[in-house]
């Protein structure tokens, strides 16, 4: 994905579940500043939660960078880790696919919940997921 639109607002370290909570709070606040409605905000923050949690649980931790832009209004979250990467992204996006014995709804669900989502991943190097909410 190209350079995120807007200005960098915050860099959140993602090592533990608490960190995911912080990152999603910041993302929610930025959307609120732009006047996002509650459904928009809930959807996007849920996506950030799923992707942030994946970075912590599967990616061994990483960081989330949050960008905000007024014209045209959008919030972008770039979530990056240096974990094992995803071997088959298409399979991972399918509901029900999980290597963790979980429900495997996070990745596919997150994509449905944001306006744009891109996954860049290299096996053995890491994963970077970019999520965009447009207002």
């Amino acid at each position: 994905m190209s350079v995120p639109e807007g200005a960098l607002v915050s860099v959140c370290v993602l090592l533990r579940d608490r960190d995911v909570l912080h990152a999603r709070r910041v993302a929610g606040q930025e959307l609120e500043k732009l006047g996002a409605r509650s459904v928009k905000k809930t959807r996007f923050v849920t996506a950030v939660s799923e992707i942030g949690r994946n970075a912590v649980m599967h990616g061994g931790g990483g960081e989330a960078r949050i960008y905000s832009q007024v014209h045209p209004p959008c919030v972008t979250v770039v979530c990056r880790d240096k974990g094992p990467g995803i071997a088959d992204v298409d399979a991972a996006l399918c509901d029900g696919f999980s290597t963790a014995g979980s429900m495997g709804r996070g990745l596919g669900g997150a994509r449905r919940l944001c306006d744009q989502m891109e996954i860049e991943t290299t096996v053995g190097k890491g994963t970077c997921v970019t999520m965009v909410a447009r207002l």
Binding site: V39, T42, R43, R105, G109, R112, L113
Partner: peptide, 11 residues
């Protein structure tokens, strides 16, 4: 309400 809508989308 927004949570209900999101849960549906997460399946």
């Amino acid at each position: 309400p927004a949570v209900a809508m999101t849960l549906v989308e997460l399946g």
